[in-house]
Amino acid sequence: MKGKYQMSLFIKIFFFGSIIPLVLFVVNPAFSLSAFEIMSKVDARYTGESAVSTTRMILIDKKDRKRTREIEMFSKDYADVDKSISFFKSPGDVKGTAYMSFNWETPSKEDDSWLYLPALQKVNRIASSDRSGSFMGSDFTYTDIDGFELNDYNYELKKESDLVEGKDCWVIELTPKNKKVIDKTGYLKSLQWIRKDIFIPVKGRILVKKGKKIKLFSAKDITKINGIWTAKTLQMITTKNKKLVHKSVFQLKSIKYNIDIGDGIFSTEVMQSGL
């Protein structure tokens, strides 16, 4: 979907697609591309019309204690909106929790989100800007999950070439255009390492608005599944004073692209009834 650069955990980053841009840019990827053009290519990359995945979210504190959540997620692109719904399958204390999000293409439309908590057996809408908070206790925020607007940022090419695990990358700085974007995302600015061959952000460093924290993002184990580049492991590390505070890992367990997902699944009724 164009017009929206999504550092989206499920919708974009897990499901990196690169069918269209490779032909044009792999030959000489560095040729006269501005930072905005690079990010536009990242945003415009084909990532499938829909996806069904199961992931494991591992939360690790600085004492190396781990908590694990398993999530099943459905996403589908429509003409004007990206819809996704996630169900927590384990552990027992979050089992049955469901999160649904509609990310509208029109910038003037705020995204819609709902959360279902099984203890209450009730679906509650979440405030539009309540996205800078942690996604289910992880180091990823709801913004990371839902994505954010390409046009919300100014882009600057900080480094023409930098190697990440042997792959040549551009280093691009993203600066929010206004305070509203900062409030929405909770991020002051970030650096993204974009792989030149497949237009994927494989590494990121994010300056968090509050708490003098810096988050370190990385995408690992990138392989092609059903013709779509897919990162099987995502990691977000929260640091303070260059020391580890907490980290979260999303590990892809299974994924199916371009499945015919029924429209009815993106509803509050399904959040209640579960899978």
Binding site: E72, K232, T233, L252, D260, I265
Partner: peptide
Amino acid sequence: IFNREWEAEVSDKKEGSEEKKIGRFGIE
């Protein structure tokens, strides 16, 4: 990360396969 079982699950998905309609399914 490199859990062999999970690796297998991901890589076993053949391109173009699994083209069935997904609705509501699964057993909790």
